[in-house]
Design a protein around this nucleic acid. Structure first.
Lengths: 249, 249
DNA sequence: TCTTTTTATTTGCATATGCAAATGGAGCTT
DNA sequence: AAGCTCCATTTGCATATGCAAATAAAAAGA
């Protein structure tokens, strides 16, 4: 544990002490100051630095562990956890995984890529300003060689400057973003629409047949990262979630 | 606090003491032994009954409070909370509410009701055994007088014997069930399908146009309560959810 | 060098103690 | 009856203490 790391923990004086400690550490994690894998100072170190008792520090850390932000092991200490990959319902965050879980072989093809100012059409589709620079991608994902889902995505280079040097030849952009970006907010919308002729042709279905449209936008602290439209042929897909009234089970 | 109430709390000896206490009380709540509004014994009473220190009892109760199962107030004590009405994504649990939030006037009409053994068709649609007794209902919900969603539902009288005496003239079955049943498990599935001619006519849309199909089944401790199919005209509806990687925000 | 044993570090759990904050209800005053 | 003050109850927070369990790393042994 370096000095800089423990010095990053500062309290704001608002509310119970254990909660100040909890929030201080949580914020360091969410802001990316302590990326996944970073080791968190041991209880006695925080105790001295913050002038709190060990029980109080323990209470803060135990709660963060319950929330899944940190992992704790006796003797080895505490480390920042990796964000959970899936999240109850609708977390088809990774299409390769999704296809793999169906027991099918995954592949994908980039249909188009364009870097620069969004075209009028793309800007409208993703609710962007006309002068915003984005990377716009269109991809088709296959399961056992058959079209699985059509992906239409914009990535904001402001949040992800590395995107310019990435060809997405090895990893589809969704998975690349999962690995390389930190997000704190996401919004999902699901609707049913009829396939347009060009979309239908790519997905090898009849024009006008029902499709499930999943639109997802993600942010990091209100800075947009990416927005994606995933079009699934209707008959072949359903999204299932199971939970109890007090949270996912 | 009656004697029977505190005597219901029994530990199983497995794992940490605070967690045994937590689970014991949680189970009483989930099983319906302590329905919402029941007052939970004060810390000192549990402390004596269980032979634990107050801090340990407090730890169990504080965690249940964070999980939302109980409400605690100084001096007035602890009571069992009502289950949260909505739950992130997809919790269109109440259609009247859903319509109300759109600022539209709600109404509904029962198209059909049948009590008794499920017909072959209904049994197949809801994956029931042929000899199962159910109440089968078909309803149409309206928003500002226009068809909003088509509901097709079965209710298991085994779990809900009161259903026989309920006409659903005042309250649609979904809301009635929310008020009168306790559920511990739910499963949602969303898919996109083309409207069948009879469905299309009721919803006043074209046959074959895309619809969002939400199927939900609920159980109480593995005993089925109800299963419902909600058919939403595609263009007019989308389900939106917003959350962060560490849980709903 | 490889294996075993020991040691030291770190977290986990439970207790006892003390005080603070909130507040329902009793009792008092007007 | 209405409002006020005071008191008792209950939860909330923080500390200090002690021991237990897990285990990484060091030391000892083969």
């Amino acid at each position: 544990m370096s000095a800089t790391q423990i010095d990053a923990v500062t309290l704001d004086g608002a509310g119970p002490l254990y909660d100040q400690i909890r929030r201080a550490i949580r914020d360091l994690i969410l802001a990316g100051t302590w990326p996944p894998g970073t080791s968190v100072p041991p209880e006695h170190a925080l105790m001295e630095k913050l002038g709190a008792s060990r029980m109080t520090v323990h209470r803060a850390l135990a709660q963060l562990a319950r929330e899944g932000l940190i992992l704790r092991r006796r003797r080895s200490g505490t480390v920042v956890a990796s964000p959970p990959a899936s999240h109850a319902m609708l977390d088809i965050l990774s299409i390769p995984e999704e296809v793999g879980e169906l027991g099918q072989a995954y592949s994908y093809r980039i249909l188009q890529r364009r870097d620069g100012k969004a075209s009028r059409e793309v800007a409208a589709r993703f609710e962007l300003g006309r002068s915003v620079n984005v990377t716009h991608l269109t991809l088709l994902h296959f399961a056992d060689g058959a079209p699985h889902v059509l992906e239409d995505r914009v990535i904001h280079p402001t949040a992800m400057p590395q995107v310019a040097d990435e060809s997405f030849a090895q990893t589809p952009p969704g998975d690349w973003l999962l690995q390389n970006s930190l997000w704190t907010q996401a919004e999902h919308a699901i609707s049913a629409i009829a396939a347009e002729p060009d979309e239908a042709e790519l997905l090898k279905i009849e024009a006008g047949s029902p499709c499930l449209l999943v639109e997802r936008r993600t942010w990091n602290q209100s800075e947009p990262i990416t927005a994606v439209r995933l079009l699934y042929p209707g008959g072949r897909h359903r999204f299932v979630g199971r939970f109890g009234p007090y949270g996912a089970v």
